[in-house]
Structures are given as structure tokens and as C-alpha cells.
Amino acid sequence: MKVVAPLIAVWAALLALLGMTVGASLVLTGTPSLVASLGIASAKAALIAWVYMQLRREGGLMRIMALGAAFWLLILLGYLALDYLTR
């Protein structure tokens, strides 16, 4: 049970976050809506990566590999946004 309980707790947290993102979409619009939906999605992704993909028990090398992809993606999206936002 020691292994199983955190896995189920994360699942419950993920469903609660899904409820939050749907709820937020009913009340927020524009930039606050975008920030809320991406923030909640990032929290869900972090839970899945940390507990389900077991990064919490891996060493630094594996964590850097996993974070590297997110970092490259942020470079791509960051420069793209810079272009469109400064026209």
C-alpha cells in the first residue's frame, strides 16, 4: 500500500485540477484565461512527470534530460511570442 497510495492521491489531484481548468474557462476570458489554463496544465504535467514518470526517484541526469525538452520548447515558444508581441 505504501507504493499505491501516492499514485491514487496524484490521480485524485489530477481530476481536481481538471475540474479547476473547466471551472476557470467558465468565468475567465482573454489573458487571465490563458494564464490559468496553462498554469493548471503545467501543474498536471509536473505531477505526472514527478510521480507517475518517477522523476522523484531518478538522479540529476535523468531530470535534466526531462527538463531539457521543456526548456527547448520554451525557447521555441518564447521567441515566437516575442516576434508577434512586438510587431
Binding site: 481548468t21 474557462s25 475567465l28 476570458t29 484565461s33 496544465a41 504535467a45 505526472i48 512527470a49 514518470m53
Partner: peptide, 19 residues
């Protein structure tokens, strides 16, 4: 499988919940 799930976690608000 978890990554396919994570991708959907982002696709869902980006496609369905734009307000």
C-alpha cells in the same frame, strides 16, 4: 504512455477552452 497523456493535458485547454 504518460507523455501521450501530458500532451493531451495541454491540448485540451489550448483547443477546447479558449475564452
Amino acid at each position: 504512455w504518460h507523455l501521450v497523456d501530458v500532451i493531451w493535458v495541454f491540448l485540451y485547454p489550448i483547443l477546447y477552452l479558449v475564452r
